[in-house]
């Protein structure tokens, strides 16, 4: 016995516990794209002549982000879409996924810029990971990658920088910030205001559960990689992910609830906590909120 789609008579490929719907391939794809369009319209209004940089690693999330942005906006003659990849220098992991990212950008006919830690920061992630260090590998990787993405996006005059953050990522970050009592970081998670020197970040997949991002990549036969970063084990995020997934399985809709609650909370929170003062790093000149930017601090340039 097969289960039928809620919207037509075709065979369902997915059951969304949180909505109670069974969907076939066509209606699942429609549902994902509808949510993404709604997120973009509500939070990241597209302007005439936008240059949209999309950070692409070759993993499922960023590949789906690029694919959908291209599908929705690719035929607008006034809008330019450019993919940016960062090779962190993680042997046995990143070179393979960047090849997949190249396949995708070639397939879509999207310009593709590739930068590396080695060329920009003078050191690979493998070298950093092997060093005597204070913080987890992910802290270095995240800060240094975002630094390169912002620089590269500025260089091409990008007006938006799209990342593949999905619902699970967002819900995990909200929970993590609560657990740490870090409300400054919580405020920073809100849709950002334009700041000179920082390209506006956009997360069009923030309302799509991670599992559905994967299913979307699968049914559209996107060239993606499901392998795991060799350094991923260090992050506390893994514990939060497990906790949240256990809760979601028992109480469907928990991830969406966390996001909805946060959306209501963050406006009030922002009033209590004015945004940090914007400064230029006195070492490298990057826009940041302190005297010296995180990247320079981590690389010991100060």
């Amino acid at each position: 016995m097969t289960i039928k789609c809620k919207k037509c008579n075709h065979e369902a490929i997915v059951f969304q516990k949180y909505s109670g719907m069974h969907l076939c391939k066509r209606h699942f794809v429609e549902d994902v794209e509808r949510k993404i369009k709604l997120t973009i319209r509500k939070e990241y209004s597209i302007q005439k002549n936008d240059v949209i940089a999309v950070a692409v690693s070759g993993g499922k999330d960023s590949s789906v982000a690029l694919y959908v942005i291209h599908k929705i906006l690719g035929n607008r003659p006034d809008i330019k879409i450019v993919a940016i990849s960062v090779d962190e220098g993680i042997d046995g992991y990143r070179p393979e996924s960047i090849e997949l990212a190249k396949n995708l950008t070639e397939m879509l006919g999207v310009q593709h810029i590739i930068k590396s830690f080695k060329e920009v920061h003078g050191v690979t992630m493998d070298e950093l990971a092997a060093m005597d260090r204070e913080k987890g590998a992910c802290s270095y990787c995240g800060v240094l990658r975002k630094n390169i993405l912002n620089k590269a996006a500025l260089e091409i005059g990008a007006t938006k920088l799209v990342t593949g953050h999905n619902l699970d990522d967002e819900a995990q970050t909200i929970l993590l910030n609560h657990f740490r009592g870090d409300m400054e970081r919580m405020v920073r998670l809100a849709p950002p205001a334009a700041v000179e020197g920082l390209v506006l970040r956009a997360k069009p997949l923030k309302n799509i559960p991670e599992k559905e991002v994967a299913l979307y990549a699968l049914v559209n036969s996107l060239p993606v990689d499901f392998s795991e970063c060799p350094y991923a084990g260090e992050a506390i995020r893994g514990e939060i992910r497990e906790l949240l997934n256990d809760f979601e399985a028992k109480h469907p809709g928990t991830k969406y609830s966390l996001l909805r609650g946060f959306d209501k909370l963050v406006g009030a929170l922002a009033k209590e906590m004015p945004p940090a003062k914007i400064e230029k790093c006195r070492v490298c000149g990057e826009t940041c909120t302190e005297d010296i930017c995180q990247a320079c601090k981590l690389l010991g340039r100060a």
């Binding site: 097969t2 289960i3 490929i13 499901f226 991923a232 084990g233 997934n245």
Partner: peptide
């Protein structure tokens, strides 16, 4: 090779489980 809704009854004696949520 095709995804199935998880509340459906197992109707095959050969299945693949694709782990899609990883760290990083």
């Amino acid at each position: 090779g095709n995804a199935v809704p998880l509340d459906g009854a197992v109707n095959s004696d050969k299945l693949t489980i694709l782990k899609v949520v990883t760290g990083g």
